[in-house]
Design a protein around this nucleic acid. Structure first.
Lengths: 348, 348
DNA sequence: CCTTCTAGTGGAAGGGCTTCCACAAATTTA
DNA sequence: TAAATTTGTGGAAGCCCTTCCACTAGAAGG
């Protein structure tokens, strides 16, 4: 029912090839012809059919994003960045949310190999080996975000560096009795964040007391939960006098739980204990949690850019980009908010 | 490079028509032939090319979701529902996030009229008239979610009914001095929620005191902000002795601000004042806010179902579905959580 | 003035599928 | 046994583009 290239050709009294060239900005079309075609096209409200185009060009102009739905926050913002960029590239975003790692395979099978998309953005999950091989073999462009694989472009966050900055911030505020409340060490980010904490402490020549470094053993979400924060903080509180005066917590969601535990015990933050979290989820702002922010929007934009590059140059060298999170100073660390200089120092 | 229907046909020693019929579950294929074709297809890892299919069938098997990115929470969950259903229908979800109402038109123009999708899910925004007309005229299936238009299928939440339930809950807890902290009355939901509040009060024969009903005048997000909750609660607190003992707040995000104002003043919730919010955003759970939950996942599923129906029967009668939100009892209302019966009564 | 380019142009072929029509073989019916 | 179905099947045509090759007319060159 909508007009086709033939309708335009007929009415503009040109061949279909010419119409096609006009719509693809091919240089060898006389200016007079071009404008005549465009006028007819506008009148008939013609748009090239994307599927016919895709079939003929063997390109789909769409990108698949596979994201874990089970960890919500974080993604909407990245997706905004992704989409901003894809829009510029005239690409559509197909979203596939996964509720369980098992579904990953289904989605990969369903979409990609059916040559439905030109490239794939793969978030926060580990790519099953079988598919990694297949993609590499078929040269399907893939970019991993918040994930890593030797042979694919990836974007991720410098967890260690972030933890280091957070810890140094606490040290710079004069604390010497600093603890860390960590997630399950099964998780790579948890291990990296621990390393960053240790590094900052060592550099400041503060002894690492094992009992001031506590980690979740929960399997659920690798311990990145409100509950784990609550429980571990209760353990810290039970230390009584030897409780830390400041703590680095491996995620904001755990910091929330920790905060609840403090309030419940009648302890105040930052007066009795200073906290710095990690992630800068939305709630952190509302609760005044000082934290390490990941530049999500920017990551999204860059992810799309890298994917586009990979689509153009399939053979170019694989890149691994690391983002350094930024310290966002709020209330829970007890820093003097009227001294921006102090803050800036730790941002760099 | 990937195998085509011709490759399968040749290797299975059948015609392409037969292969096609096998993949479309057409009944008139002999069982022996079918299994032979499937075996070859499996061996070559064949998948029908979706674009070729789309072109031939004049169907795309994909749906466009246009969502406002600027109001975040709420959507991921609906999208999960949408996608669960679309997956069953073997449909892909194309996501178009809008950061500003102006972009709506761009997205509509870009995608739909290029016959790129079979249907559209349109979230929480008002459909520009020009497009409404176009869609109706071209019979493009559209379902509005959390929005309304006479001529399109829509799904929305019974705000009035929800507010009514929330208020009755407070009344049933024995309160008689009940206030309402509302968003900007420019917004339709704010007006509806006010009506529900008034209705419950009238039914309980409690006089409506104007000074206990306060609304935001902010334009930003129609006053559905943490700040408006904070400021209005300060006003309530300033009432001193005549402050309400219980309040219905038009959104959880405002309830957060209100809570902060209370804490700051040294007042406790629910001991000094009971609160019920609206929306059940993620933070509400963490903060123990009693609230009215919108069945987001279910809405997503149903939206996809209705869209599918509309695609099958373009002429069927337009439907408008209303969801009644459900009371989620937590701490801020002061209800006895050990008495589930009490809760259940108000859920129905 | 004739040749050689060049800038434009037309349209066939092809991309991978669905669908329909034609037809052969097997089965039922008279 | 012949006629009338029924059951499977093959493949051309068509979906709407892009791309390439062939071609024309005018410009430039000799």
């Amino acid at each position: 029912m909508p007009p086709t290239i033939y309708d335009i050709a007929k009415q503009a009294k040109v061949g279909i090839g010419t119409v096609s060239r006009v719509f693809n900005n091919h240089p060898s079309v006389a200016e007079a012809t071009r404008s005549r075609v465009l006028k007819v096209a506008a009148r008939l409200n013609y748009q090239p059919h994307p599927y016919a185009r895709g079939l003929a060009r063997n390109r789909t102009n769409s990108v698949l994003a596979i994201i874990p739905f089970f960890t919500t926050f974080f993604f909407l913002e990245i997706l905004q960045g992704v989409q901003a960029k894809l829009g510029q590239l005239d690409c559509d975003l197909i979203l596939y949310g996964v509720n369980h790692p098992d579904q990953v395979e289904a989605s990969l099978r369903h979409n990609a190999l059916r040559s439905r998309v030109d490239g794939i953005l793969f978030f926060s999950m580990s790519m099953p080996d079988a598919f990694a091989d297949q993609y590499l073999q078929h040269k399907i462009p893939v970019v991993l975000v918040d994930a890593f694989h030797q042979n694919f472009d990836s974007l991720s966050v410098e967890n260690q560096q972030g933890a280091y900055i957070a810890t140094k911030h606490l040290i710079s505020l004069g604390h010497t009795r600093i603890g860390m409340l960590n997630a399950n060490l099964e998780s790579v980010p948890a291990r990296e964040r621990l390393k960053g904490f240790q590094k900052a402490m060592r550099e400041a020549k503060i002894a690492l007391e094992p009992r001031l470094i506590r980690k979740s053993t929960s399997a659920r979400l690798d311990g990145f939960t409100r509950e784990s924060g609550y429980e571990l903080m209760k353990e810290f509180i039970a230390l009584g006098k030897s409780m830390p005066t400041a703590m680095f917590i491996s995620s904001d969601i755990q910091a929330m739980g920790a905060l609840a535990a403090l309030t419940e015990t009648g302890l105040r933050c930052p007066e009795d204990v200073s906290l710095v979290g990690f992630d800068d989820i939305e709630i952190a702002g509302h609760l005044g949690i000082t934290t390490m922010r990941q530049p999500m929007y920017e990551m999204g934009v860059l992810a799309a850019e890298i994917l586009a590059k990979r689509m153009q140059h399939p053979q170019s060298e694989v890149t691994h980009t690391k983002f350094v999170p930024k310290l966002i100073v709020r209330k829970t660390c007890g820093a003097d908010l009227s001294q921006p200089a102090l803050v800036a120092e730790h941002v760099a």
